[in-house]
């Protein structure tokens, strides 16, 4: 009996260790962000001084990141949802090839994509200098997540028959898309949206190459603070990032669990 339990106990202990490895530094950074002096530990007292300082130094990067994330979401919704539907109804080899191409950004390092974009559009000054340049990169990078997420949902409903039945009731192509396709794809759209916003907020590989001094985003600012600021400020900045991120992650978990329980019914 004990022999049979031992491996489980070891497994449990290992799991706790791994969890600690993942979570302890995150907690440390959050605490460090509100600690008066990190090297003296929590006993030095708690303060919001660092957070305020981060806000004065970096508020523009935070706002820009939020705006870019929302704009990325807007683009992936307006472009990705119809495209997911188009790919689903087209099917066959053409759809597979298109899907393959648009998911390629997942397989190719962001650095390479960013270099390509700079080489191609570096000469177009106004575009290169604006946040739109970063937006374009984020849209390319997040699009496959939205499309796959929506297609996964469209794939399990009997789209063709629903479409035909709406057509038999007199609905035009457009009406069918709005009344039948989109509402039934909502779980996928929701999951895709959360992923897109989360990824855009944290995107660094592409953004570091694409940004200019006037278009810094939150992760770019983070890298900057890690390299040049005292640990407390870097931590406070990271804390703000976590505060933005955690609700998104919680919503994602909630949506996933919702879907799992509904799927089981």
């Amino acid at each position: 009996m004990i022999a049979a339990r031992l491996p489980v106990a070891l497994q449990a202990a290992f799991t706790v260790l791994v969890t600690a490895f993942l979570i302890v530094p995150a907690v440390m950074s959050m605490l460090a962000g509100v600690t008066v002096q990190y090297s003296r530990g929590l006993s030095s007292g708690l303060t919001l001084e660092w957070v305020v300082e981060v806000w004065t130094l970096y508020s523009d990067t935070i706002l820009r990141s939020v705006l870019i994330a929302l704009a990325t979401l807007g683009c992936t919704l307006t472009i990705g949802v119809p495209a997911a539907y188009g790919l689903q109804v087209t099917g066959g080899r053409i759809a597979r090839v298109i899907e393959e191409i648009i998911t390629l950004p997942l397989a190719i390092p962001g650095l390479a994509i960013a270099l390509g974009m700079i080489i191609t559009y570096g000469g177009v000054g106004s575009f290169r200098q604006s946040s739109l340049f970063i937006l374009a990169g984020h849209v390319v990078f997040t699009m496959p997540f939205m499309i796959r997420s929506v297609m996964a949902v469209l794939g399990v409903i009997d789209l063709d028959t629903l479409d035909e039945s709406a057509a038999s009731l007199g609905a035009s192509r457009w009406q069918r898309f709005i009344d039948v396709v989109v509402p039934n794809a909502i779980p996928g759209i929701l999951a895709g949206s959360l992923t897109v916003v989360t990824l855009s907020l944290g995107e660094f590989n592409l953004t570091w190459m694409l940004h200019t001094p006037l278009t810094k985003t939150l992760p770019v600012g983070l890298a900057d603070s890690y390299a040049s600021m005292r640990l407390e400020i870097a931590s406070a900045y990271t804390l703000i990032f976590f505060v933005l991120l955690v609700p998104l992650l919680a919503a994602m978990q909630f949506a996933a669990r919702n879907r799992a329980t509904r799927g089981r019914q």
């Binding site: 409903i157 009997d158 028959t161 629903l162 035909e164 039945s165 709406a166 038999s168 009344d179 039948v180 509402p183 039934n184 909502i186």
Partner: peptide, 12 residues
Amino acid sequence: GMVFQSYALFPN
């Protein structure tokens, strides 16, 4: 008017 074998009711 059409009635499908799977009924094809709109789940939404």
